[in-house]
């Protein structure tokens, strides 16, 4: 098939080719994500009720948000949730991927099982967790009670109401698990077996070979999980608490939905969205700094 005489002529496709390959994603992303996101950013600088034309008001919307105690509460709740849920999800997914990497007895079932909570529809999953954390009848408190430990009111108590959300988010680690499983499978096996032959123990092999290989995946996953976790609470909160008791489970997505769609205040609503994006960006920068210089990254 290859004609050595045409190799020179084919050099051009290799210069043009990558851009052609990139085009559908690049154009699609800029049009369907970049542009609407930019519009939202612009809306946050306006007073817009969805009907009359938006009026430019500078940073007024941000001032309104800054003065709104509920927005502050929602931000605080969201950050508390984020700080607990994301590390749990990533560490859990990594642990499970390592545990279930090699096919042994029960691995197939366990892999599918680990995947399941991620694909049970939000509404049904929320109902399941509502039962698991039922303060009188749920298995968690029955177990705690049997052990003679205190039984919290969980969702009924402002002090503990966010914990079931964290646990529910952590249980839905199936997607991260699948990605890390695929990442582990993509490490050339001979590299790891070579390390094992060199007499490196399991832990040493993991730290020296496996982990550095996984770092890029872990970075992408952590950023993705941060963004997902920021938005994920909407349906579970609607089903489980509606923000109760007394705003202890009011998270940013619900605040955004109420501000923009219930009150038609797209200016402050958009400002809250920008706030959400800023939180995601700040956390992501942190993750990137943390991962810098560790593992096989783009810098090589």
């Amino acid at each position: 098939m290859p004609d050595p005489g045409r190799v020179a002529a084919l050099r051009d496709p290799w210069r043009r080719g990558p851009w052609l390959m990139l085009a559908p994603w690049l154009v699609g992303s800029l049009l369907l994500v970049g542009l609407p996101a930019l519009l939202t950013l612009l809306l946050s600088l306006t007073a817009y009720d969805g009907i009359s034309a938006p009026v430019f008001t500078g940073f007024d919307a941000y001032r309104i948000v800054a003065r709104d105690p509920l927005a502050g509460r929602a931000l605080e709740n969201t950050l508390l949730f984020l700080v607990a849920a994301v590390p749990l999800r990533i560490i859990g997914a990594l642990g499970l991927a390592l545990l279930l990497e090699r096919p042994r007895r029960g691995t197939g079932t366990a892999r599918v099982a680990a995947w399941i909570p991620a694909v049970i529809p939000d509404v049904a999953a929320a109902l399941v967790w509502l039962w698991i954390f039922n303060p009188l009848l749920g298995p968690v408190n029955l177990l705690l009670g049997a052990l003679g430990l205190p039984t919290p009111g969980w969702l009924a108590d402002p002090e503990t109401a966010r914990i079931p959300f964290v646990v529910m988010a952590a249980a839905g680690l199936g997607e991260g698990f699948v990605v890390l499983l695929a990442a582990l499978k993509g490490i050339p096996p001979e590299i790891r077996s070579a390390a094992a032959l060199d007499g490196a123990g399991r832990v040493a092999t993991f730290r020296a070979i496996t982990l550095p290989f996984l770092v890029p995946w872990l970075v992408v996953l952590s950023i993705r999980d941060t963004v997902v976790a920021l938005q994920w609470t909407l349906i579970p909160a609607l089903v489980m608490t509606g923000g109760d008791p007394y705003y202890s489970t009011l998270f940013l997505p619900q605040a955004i939905r109420e501000e923009a769609f219930d009150r038609f205040r797209y200016g402050p609503g958009s400002a809250l969205i920008v706030l959400l994006a800023l939180v995601a960006a700040a956390v992501s920068v942190g993750i990137l700094l943390l991962a810098r210089g560790r593992g096989v990254t783009d810098a090589d």
Partner: peptide, 27 residues
């Protein structure tokens, strides 16, 4: 170019879904 594009992908990743609800509708 690679770094710019990876950076772009990360920035796109950071766009929260609610940022698209209304404005994508308008588009």
């Amino acid at each position: 170019a690679r770094r710019t594009l990876l950076g772009l992908a990360v920035v796109l990743l950071l766009v929260p879904a609610p940022a698209l609800w209304l404005t994508r509708f308008l588009l």
